[in-house]
Design a binder for these strands. Sequence first.
DNA 1: TCAAAGGTTGACACTTGTGTGAAGGAAAGT
DNA 2: ACTTTCCTTCACACAAGTGTCAACCTTTGA
Lengths: 122, 122
Amino acid sequence: MRIGELAGRTNVPPRLLRYYEEQGLLAPDRAVNGYRDYAECLVNRVVQIRGLLDAGLPTKIIKQILPCLDNPCTIHVSDAAPELIAILEEERERMDSRIRCLTRNRDAIGAYLDTIRDRPSS
Amino acid sequence: MRIGELAGRTNVPPRLLRYYEEQGLLAPDRAVNGYRDYAECLVNRVVQIRGLLDAGLPTKIIKQILPCLDNPCTIHVSDAAPELIAILEEERERMDSRIRCLTRNRDAIGAYLDTIRDRPSS
DNA sequence: TCAAAGGTTGACACTTGTGTGAAGGAAAGT
DNA sequence: ACTTTCCTTCACACAAGTGTCAACCTTTGA
């Protein structure tokens, strides 16, 4: 599919899709006329990229871990570069920290909301 | 305590602590000589701010939800501005999305690591 | 008492990363 | 032909964070 359709289906503007390609997060084929040609599975990949970016991961990290995330596109078993493993483990640990921090604060917000709902004014 | 000590205990450079104050995340007292005077509990608060920033939340949001997060500093029951509640609920939902996304991808990385550990080369 | 050393303050500017806008041109659809 | 979509490229916007500098405060020690 072309960039317009992908933009419509992912709700990510074409400009941003080109930016992600520039950052190495996407590598669509090219038609003979030079137009980008996105495979079907890239719809999911774009959604996934958006989620990770919203979660605070920088593009450089996403670029590294993306090939390992289960996606119908890739068989992803391949060669296990020894230093890539270290990066992945480190990044997994970092994501764990984020999850813990977010969970803690989300629950704190929840508790606060519960409190003020019980006594609308105090 | 003064800015240098807080910086040492939180591992956040003084420059950044002034920046957070500028963004409205901290409001230390001032000594007669103009030096900032941080209360003890602000150590935790700075750590909390760092965690939320690392988790991808922008300062504007952190500024809004901080007063509601249980901190020995604040009694935090106070008045429940009707639109603040909406902001909190929305933000809680957003944090939930982040947690789900991060968890999903963290597990995917974990699964990948398990796979390549079982068969070091395939 | 005086001076050197080191922490603090405010201010201006700069870097990096994510995301947009717009110009100028080529291809596709009608 | 005319409009829409796409291409590349340059530039800009905004947030987080950092560098640096002159001036001021405090401590220490001669």
